[in-house]
Amino acid sequence: MGTWSRFNIASIVLGFGFLYLPIVLLVIFSFNESKLVTVWAGFSTKWYTQLWHNQALLDAAWVTIRVALISATCATVLGTLAALALVRYTRFRGRMLFSGMVYAPLVMPEVITGLSLLLLFVAIGLDRGFWTITLAHITFTMCFVAVVVQSRLLSFDQSIEEAALDLGATPVRTFFAITLPVIAPAVFSGWVLAFTLSLDDLVISSFTTGPGATTLPMKIYSQVRLGVTPEINAICTILIGIVAIGVVVASIVTKQREAQRERDERAAFAQS
């Protein structure tokens, strides 16, 4: 390993400082007594208690979570299938088009995706609202799931599937008994990614929504346009907290699992 020079350390510290400082400031000022976000006037949690009484906000949060749960689940199924199609079937008609359609949404500007989906929903006469947002989210998040699952499938030892076929399992059985359990962690990360992307989305939701379906980002956006308030900081802090707890728990669990695995492996070799 080359040396980890002072320059390397400095660039990491500065880079990470840049990434985290704004978020840290935002969290700090959510506990500000004053309504002015930029002047510290003492510690308070009043903005959090106020949130509890903001029914419109709670409704929006509930819509957002339902959209995210449904769309992440459907997107995971579709994205996993898409990844399988890309990795396992190297030759079928229109494969070029297919892989293009999987990769393009990863970089497609959201305004285009949003507008085009809206026009589709209008053209087929679908009432806009909860379900159109969900359909739109399925469409753009499934491609992220596909990419995550695909990279796992690429490193997958296919001979274990052949072994299952060889032992008499039909392809369908092989998929459910062998392939799916082995790629399950990647499928799960795909689900989590789809879930957070859906929670987060503003632009596509705004285009495809209809009366009565307001998501949390849309709510936050309309308030942000009116100015910065500690209340918004409080919502943001809660969302960040949820994500941070989730990530920390997940990483502790995987760390422990890996440590356990390493111990097992060492034990196995000590024995043989």
């Binding site: 704004p22 987060d200 942000v224 943001c236």
Partner: peptide, 16 residues
């Protein structure tokens, strides 16, 4: 990690 937190929130943080 920042990728998991809301895009909107991260942009908003810069206003202040």
């Amino acid at each position: 990690l920042p990728f998991w937190t809301s895009f909107l929130i991260r942009v908003y943080a810069w206003i202040a």
